[in-house]
């Protein structure tokens, strides 16, 4: 027996060494280095050693000192907040709905439907963004279909329309400017602008995001549904439970771990939206599709402010941790 288990210590570390070196150099060391850089003034162009210490200035630029940068950071937070609040519930609901329908007994063509719904999830984000630029173009499919369905001609310039949805709604009932109470500012952005809702342009990106991710989450729900024992449902229906009761009392509680996972992955993913913004709108129009992820890129790689970009990254990390933490608390309380 000792022959079998001998020398495992050496072998273990040898087997692990490529992973340890790789993760160390490209995951752990970078994070430590970036934390250091977030407290320095560095353009990214000069050698790192030549950078000047900056104290907490990079964080102050984002959070406490009044500046254009803080205004942009505020806009990016507002935009991404609406993005998360729109996309996460939409993709979770649609994924769950599709999973329930695809999971139905005696369904013909199950594999086909599952494949069709999942396919967008595996494709290139840039290719799909291009396809959606075309769909949302002024003479594109979306406007054409809406014109056919709605009274009157719809000719929205989706990707270049900075009007917020909540502002548009208020305009429809005659409120066109900020009431006195909302004239104040928070982080260089007026309360009225905080409450704009997602812009029309951002809504197009949100529709794209929902369209691409729903399939993946549907597969997770499907896997969860297959873990619901059939005997349990049969027993419940023999005991006289209605389909509605079976759904709310048996299926839904058993799917809670899956729901938890889908929400967590959804929140983590939506706070990092970048590729689609880069390809579709570059943060515009009027900065209404600016997201923290895009701001990291803009500040670090276009405006040569690497220290600030690193600081944004750590703020985003904290936001993601807070959001997933809150979601965990809420779901646990319900249990």
């Amino acid at each position: 027996m000792s022959r079998i288990h001998g020398r495992q210590g050496l072998a273990g570390w040898l087997f692990m060494s490529p992973a340890i070196i790789g993760l160390g150099v490209f995951m752990v060391a970078p994070i430590a280095l970036a934390l250091w850089v977030s407290f320095r003034d560095w353009s990214g162009l000069t050698p790192l050693g030549a950078s000047e210490p900056a104290g907490a200035a990079n964080y102050a630029d984002l959070l406490t000192d009044s500046s254009v940068v803080r205004g942009d950071f505020a806009k990016s937070l507002r935009n991404n907040l609406y993005y998360v609040l729109g996309v996460v519930p939409a993709q979770t609901f649609l994924a769950f709905l599709l999973a329930l329908v695809v999971n139905a007994r005696l369904l013909k063509g199950r594999t086909f439907f599952r494949t069709a719904f999942y396919f967008p999830s595996v494709t290139s984000s840039i290719a799909v963004a291009f396809i959606f630029i075309f769909l949302f173009s002024p003479t594109g499919v979306v406007n054409t279909v809406l014109s056919a369905v709605l009274p009157g001609k719809v000719d929205l310039v989706w990707l270049d329309d900075s009007d917020g949805l909540l502002h548009l709604l208020l305009r429809a009932v005659g409120v066109d400017a900020a009431p006195g109470a909302l004239r104040g500012e928070f982080m260089d952005l007026s309360w009225w602008d905080w409450l704009s809702g997602p812009s029309v342009a951002l809504s197009s990106v949100m529709i794209l995001a929902t369209w691409t991710t729903t399939g993946t989450f549907m597969l997770m729900f499907l896997a969860g549904l297959q873990n619901v024992p059939e005997e349990l449902e049969e027993a419940a229906s023999i005991d006289g439970a209605s389909p509605r009761q079976r759904f709310f009392r048996i299926t839904l509680p058993l799917l809670k771990p899956t729901l938890f996972l889908v929400l967590t992955l959804g929140i983590i993913g939506t706070w990092q939206v970048f590729d689609q913004v880069y390809a579709m709108t570059s943060g515009g129009p009027q900065k209404t599709t600016l997201t923290p992820a895009y701001l990291i890129y803009r500040e670090g790689f276009q405006n040569s402010a690497m220290g600030r970009a690193a600081a944004i990254a750590f703020v985003v990390l904290v936001i993601i941790l807070v959001f997933t933490g809150v979601q965990r608390l809420v779901l646990r309380k319900e249990r």
Binding site: I20, L23, L48, I268, A293, I296, M306, A309, A313
Partner: peptide, 27 residues
């Protein structure tokens, strides 16, 4: 050290890729 390494890998797994943008460029 196996337990520590496994825990380390799980925590690396939790780091959102976007946070690594600047750090990886640096390295």
């Amino acid at each position: 050290g196996r337990g520590v390494l496994f825990a380390g890998i799980i925590s690396v797994l939790a780091v959102p890729p976007i946070v690594l943008t600047v750090p990886r460029f640096l390295v």
